[in-house]
């Protein structure tokens, strides 16, 4: 039982790390630009497709990843230039509609370019295999790599946000963007930077999961909703909140699916327990979100203080 718990907890952390990579950029986009971007999930999908394509072209995953990242950044910047730039001044409803349209375009677009069939990316030789945990327990090495890469990115982001000039502007922007602009900062350039960087982080998450998930149209949609839950729990505009909430959501979702039925079996008969557990497990994170919001309507770490 403990072994199972350890494995599932690691899976949960790995899932949470991925959610964090997608959520980190999006929470800044929400917080600093006050822009609701539904299309962030498709950026994750596009990142996965880029990784799959460039890996197939170069024959090497790491090289493919190295090309996919700037490609995702470029893709984000192009989208910013073509569409998002015109949405900053609009109300939330316009933003919802335009980015919803963008989801339709990109989901259908990848079908046209890459076909509707799922693509798979082999795990690179160097990163395959398992590493021993306790006793006979093994854990896939590639998942450890994902966790490590995610944690390294989180540390990098923390340094960037808390110890650089750009990070200072980001934090100031999340609290009061008009004031930052009034103080002479080119807020448009800051917006562009945040958007491109957020697109690259989402693309990075997509590229990292490409070898363990199937790369297919619509793969970003589910991630998008989970990312929203993460951002709402963590507090809009807070990278720290996104990290804590992402790990929390990853753990609750993964452990809930495995242990929900097991725990319920203690109080009801096995078939009813597994049925109830399977029904309740996917709802757990939403219940968690509702509970957090009930007590803290602006999330765990609100960037704008309690008033926002």
């Amino acid at each position: 039982m403990f072994n199972l718990f350890l494995l599932q907890a690691l899976n949960g952390v790995q899932f949470g790390i991925l959610l964090f990579l997608v959520a980190a950029g999006l929470t800044l986009i929400f917080g600093i630009m006050d822009l609701i971007n539904l299309a962030h999930g498709v950026l994750y999908m596009v990142g996965a497709y880029f990784a799959a394509t460039f890996t197939a072209l170069t024959g090497d995953f790491l090289l493919g990843l190295a090309i996919a990242l700037p490609a995702a950044l470029l893709f984000g910047l192009v989208l910013e230039f073509l569409i998002f730039r015109h949405l900053y001044e609009r109300d939330h409803l316009d933003q919802v509609l335009a980015t919803f349209g963008l989801i339709l375009i990109l989901n259908e677009g990848v079908k046209i370019v890459w076909g509707a069939a799922p693509m798979s990316v082999p795990i690179p030789e160097l990163l395959s295999g398992s590493i021993p945990l306790i006793g006979p327990l093994q854990y896939p090495f590639y998942r450890v790599v994902i966790i490590t890469a995610g944690l390294a990115t989180a540390v990098g982001l923390w340094l960037l946000v808390n110890h650089t000039r750009v990070g200072m502007l980001l934090r100031a922007g999340a609290v009061n963007a008009p004031m930052v602009s009034a103080l002479g900062v080119d807020i448009r350039r800051l917006f562009m930077l945040v958007f491109g960087f957020g697109a690259m982080l989402a693309g990075f998450a997509g590229a990292m999961v490409a070898p363990i998930l199937s790369v297919e149209p619509g793969m970003g949609d589910g991630v998008l909703i989970l990312t929203f839950v993460v951002i709402v729990i963590g507090g809009v505009g807070s990278v720290r909140g996104a990290f804590v909430a992402a790990i929390l959501v990853g753990l609750v979702d993964t452990l809930g699916r495995t242990f929900g039925p097991i725990v319920l079996r203690a109080v009801m008969d096995p078939s009813a327990a597994s049925q109830t557990g399977r029904t309740l497990a996917p709802m757990l994170i939403y219940i968690l979100m509702a509970a957090v919001l009930f007590f803290r309507p602006s999330g765990l770490f609100p960037a704008k203080g309690a008033a926002a």
Partner: peptide, 9 residues
């Protein structure tokens, strides 16, 4: 859906 998306945007 591509056409619908373009129209929406």
């Amino acid at each position: 859906k591509l056409g619908l998306g373009v129209l929406l945007v």
